[in-house]
Computed example of a mutant assay.
Amino acid sequence: MSIAWYDGIVVGVDGSAESLAALDWAAHAAELHEARLTVVATYGVPIGRDPGVGGLIGEMRDQAGRAAEAARAWLVEHRPEDEDVEVLVTSGDAARELSRRSRTCGLVVVGRRGLGKLDRMVLGSTSSTLAAIAPGAVAVVPAGATTADPRRIRVGVGREDEPDVLGAAFAEADVRGCALEVLHVTSADTYSAVPPELDPVAASWREAATADLADRVARWSEKYPRVTCTIVIRRGNPAPALLSGLTPEDLLVVGGRRHQAVMGRMLRSVPDAVLRAAPCTVLVGHAHRRPSA
């Protein structure tokens, strides 16, 4: 099955084991969605007039070239049938270059390295920066996550999510033949914790929110009747609730709002917190392509 949301997949590689795992995940997704796959290796261009800069640029370009060749070799060995693949070496910051390409493709895929919490907050990483600034959808594949079809897809939804989130989750569950769990997390504040019998207004509000979610899910279920879907409602903090019980064999889909990368990390946005800790691939769906039920 092919959907317009996947009108091309771009994967960033740097020669590391994590980037080759991302390449594996992206190649499989491209096959499932009949999408063109583009492999991109980037190298930075230092700013300055120091005589040694030219040599440094050459070394970085050569390193990117080796990463591209490693990707080609991997594809020949593991996916020789994949003919519609383009491998590019480009200059520029990896996150910025991949973000630029996300404007015209359906999905950008990257691996996730094991940076410490302080490093990730101060220095950032390609995966977290890309997920923060990209206008399109981003999939982040951590080390150890399955690159095959997941055993379960969990999608986190709010009261007013962009259509991309549920639509992407249902489309993935349909094409990958796995169960879908729709998770809605309510606030852990005192108001939401009041027992229904003590506050009929709060109870009525919660019932209306639940009914609205069920209606949205039902509309997507009509479009994807093969998908087995369950709705789970939990109370608490969103990030821990989304991460609870996940394994490397799962796929997590969350919504994202485009913001500055540093502010996103400093403020601990839910997608960023999930990306830093999830043991499985995380798909962050932004609102630049909207499948409709």
Rank of each mutant, 00 (worst) to 15 (best):
64 A>K: 07
185 V>F: 00
275 L>G: 03
116 G>D: 11
2 S>A: 05
187 S>Y: 05
58 G>P: 02
65 G>Y: 14
53 V>H: 06
31 E>K: 15
89 V>P: 03
261 A>V: 09
39 V>T: 09
266 M>H: 12
222 E>N: 10
21 A>Y: 07
206 R>W: 09
147 T>C: 05
252 L>V: 00
215 D>N: 12
197 E>I: 14
267 L>R: 06
70 A>N: 12
139 A>C: 13
73 A>G: 12
168 A>L: 05
1 M>G: 09
139 A>S: 11
247 T>Y: 03
78 H>N: 14
40 V>I: 13
156 G>M: 08
118 L>P: 03
245 G>R: 02
5 W>P: 00
123 L>H: 15
15 G>M: 06
42 T>Y: 08
38 T>Q: 12
278 A>G: 08
28 H>N: 15
246 L>Q: 02
205 W>I: 15
82 D>Y: 09
167 G>L: 00
96 R>W: 11
1 M>N: 02
14 D>W: 03
136 G>S: 10
235 R>M: 06
217 V>S: 00
193 A>I: 00
229 C>P: 01
219 R>D: 04
273 A>Q: 15
61 R>K: 10
118 L>M: 11
92 G>D: 05
93 D>M: 13
112 R>G: 01
124 G>A: 12
28 H>P: 12
209 A>T: 14
10 V>P: 07
243 L>W: 03
272 D>F: 07
87 V>D: 07
131 A>C: 01
252 L>R: 01
43 Y>W: 01
154 R>Q: 05
83 E>C: 07
252 L>K: 02
228 T>R: 15
74 W>L: 02
28 H>K: 15
174 D>L: 00
288 H>N: 13
234 R>E: 15
67 A>D: 13
198 L>W: 05
231 I>P: 00
187 S>R: 09
157 V>F: 01
190 T>H: 09
138 V>I: 14
224 Y>R: 06
160 E>F: 04
9 I>Y: 03
217 V>N: 00
18 E>Y: 12
110 V>L: 08
146 T>Q: 13
127 S>Y: 11
187 S>E: 00
228 T>Y: 04
88 L>P: 09
6 Y>D: 03
30 A>I: 12
143 A>K: 13
199 D>Q: 05
114 G>S: 05
248 P>Y: 06
261 A>K: 09
91 S>M: 07
181 E>L: 05
216 R>T: 04
289 R>E: 04
199 D>A: 12
146 T>Y: 09
248 P>F: 03
136 G>V: 11
